[in-house]
Design a protein around this nucleic acid. Structure first.
Length: 495
RNA sequence: GCCCCGGUAGCUCAAAGGAUAGAGCAACAGUCUUCUAAACUGUAGGUUACAGGUUCGAGUCCUGUCCGGGGCGCCA
């Protein structure tokens, strides 16, 4: 049967609820449903009643989900590269929360291993250097050269003097390790907080070894024949001939990062019982996706409970010239960028592109564009609404018992349509785990408002219409603020 | 060599296998005596890298090629 005929039949026999104004056949058999204008207008009431909860859905049914993000080694401040991870993870967490999941935000702290040892030795060398004793603890090969370690060492000198130079070498390594870690974590926490990101937990990798989780998981894998010994090391066996094996315990007896990963996924899914463990990783970690999923399977878990969101790396330019990133060379810190362009702009910019898209960011340009940056366009919409309310209060217009049926102007109706879309945008962003949709929606919602603002005067037309429009504008404010908050941004009353 | 991501308007990017592929910036032409012009209205701009294939229907899925980025067992 021709699609058009099927469409005609559906239209002929389908129910006609009152909210449906028309159903027409278009193109190659599509059915267009048109919502009744008055039904749309009445939806404003629903938005006002929902308030802060508008856009929250029941879909997730309170199921526990963990989003683990950033998790950068505590060997330096967060780099701008971590910014994308931070923004993606936090916005995804917010979206899942809005979709009705019980979300746990977590930072995995790699507080054991080579890198931390190297970090501690680097810090100690700086400390000795400042005290004029560089020969006692020479700067290690491949050590961390960043300025921040000099600063940290200077503070240590001012706090404890040269006392730590008199300690035995092993003991001093221990002290620099612990002090350095403590201070670095505090710094990272502050870096995240500057972006309005707060974790429910900072999970210590070390704790997996201390509390026996690692031992338990290791024994389970061994008992199940998932491990094998070769070349003096212990390997996690690939599932097929083509799969590669991965080292779990080095030939010197120390576990690898992967060992911690296996114990950690067990902790997430079995011990703590999260239904989903979501990881936010840079594309440079993509080689680890297969093995963490394989580890989950080896532990008898359904690997669909493990979701890895890979994002492409951000390359940075300043006025057209590439800026090198990475902890071992001169790098741009996240805090630096936030200080330069603000938390809201940083979040919006890093969230605008899908995780799959590579992005190059020009710092010079980001600052220069700050006045016509979309972030201001969206926030300005919110501020403009706030000023309407100031005006309305001065003129004595209220939203009490408005006659919403007066909302019939095309600009009013299209604003209502955009407001109502928030719910499907949240659902879509949660289903596809793509929080970048929020930024596009925010711009479309703001555009609908700005257009409305231009075409329809709120305060100053007849009182009944003013009351109805004020209600609409209040609903728009709710939708805009809720969207901004999902993106971790502020909704300013004034700009 | 193998694996992952991308290639869409001049630029930066969207697009749940569905209709005539959309925004912002840049360009061009207009709009402030008014609740904030950080705004609005309009015009122009496309062989969705290339070649095949699957499908009623492909930017989207499959195969191959080219270009850019990332990765490939005792670093994380």
């Amino acid at each position: 049967m021709a699609p058009q005929k099927i469409a005609a039949a559906i239209i002929e026999y389908m129910a006609r609820p009152p909210y449906l104004a028309a159903a027409t056949i278009a193109g190659p058999g599509f059915i267009n449903f048109r919502l009744a204008d008055d039904w749309l207008a009445q939806q404003v009431e629903r938005v006002l009643v929902a308030g802060d909860n508008f856009g929250r859905l029941a879909a997730g049914q309170g199921r526990p989900v963990q989003v683990e993000f950033i998790s950068a080694n505590p060997t330096g401040p967060l780099t701008f590269g971590s910014g994308r991870n931070a923004v993606l993870g936090d916005a995804l967490a917010a979206v899942l929360e809005a979709a009705g999941y019980r979300v746990h935000r977590e930072y995995y702290l790699n507080d054991v291993g080579n890198q931390m040892e190297l970090f501690a030795r680097s810090l100690r060398a700086r400390y000795a250097e400042i005290l004029g004793r560089p020969e006692q603890y020479p700067f290690p090969e491949n050590g961390y050269p960043g300025e921040y370690l000099l600063d940290m060492a200077r503070r240590l000198v001012s706090e404890v003097g040269d006392a730590w130079l008199n300690l035995e070498a092993a003991e001093s390594q221990q002290i620099f390790y612990q002090e350095g870690l403590k201070r670095m974590v505090a710094r990272i926490k502050a870096d995240a907080a500057a972006l309005n990101i707060h974790f429910d937990a900072w999970f210590s990798e070390k704790s997996l070894y201390d509390d026996g989780t690692y031992q338990r998981v290791f024994e389970k894998l061994q008992a199940d024949g998932q491990l094998l010994e070769k070349e003096g090391a212990i390997w996690f066996k690939g599932e097929t001939e083509d799969d590669k094996d991965n080292v779990v315990v080095r030939s010197d007896g120390r576990p690898t990062y992967f060992a911690g990963d296996i114990a950690y996924v067990y902790d997430k899914l079995v011990i703590r019982g999260f239904e989903q463990a979501i990881y936010i990783w840079g594309a440079d970690h993509h080689g680890h996706v297969a093995r963490i999923k394989a580890a989950a399977r080896a532990l008898g878990l359904d690997d669909s409970r493990v979701t890895i969101i890979l994002y492409q790396l951000v390359t940075l330019e300043r006025d057209g010239k590439p800026v090198r990133m990475g902890k071992r060379s001169k790098f741009v810190t996240l805090a630096e960028v936030v200080a330069e362009i603000g938390a809201d702009a940083t979040r919006f910019m890093l969230l605008t592109r899908s995780a799959d898209s590579q992005m190059t960011l020009d710092l010079g340009l980001a600052v220069k564009q700050s006045t016509d940056n979309p972030v201001y366009y969206v926030q300005y919409g919110h501020a403009r609404i706030a000023s309407i309310f100031t005006k309305a209060a001065a003129e004595g217009v209220s939203t009490a018992s408005p006659n919403l049926s007066l909302l019939t102007h095309p600009a009013e109706l299209s604003l209502i349509r955009q407001i109502l879309r928030l719910e499907e945008v949240v659902a879509h962003a949660a289903n596809t785990k793509s929080p970048h949709h929020l930024t596009y929606y925010a711009q479309e919602l703001a555009a609908a408002f700005h257009s409305f603002y231009h075409h329809c005067r709120v305060v100053g037309s007849n009182p009944a219409l003013s009351a109805a429009r004020l209600s609409l504008v209040k609903a728009a404010k709710i939708a805009l603020a809720n969207t901004l908050h999902l993106m971790g941004m502020t909704a300013p009353e004034q700009m």
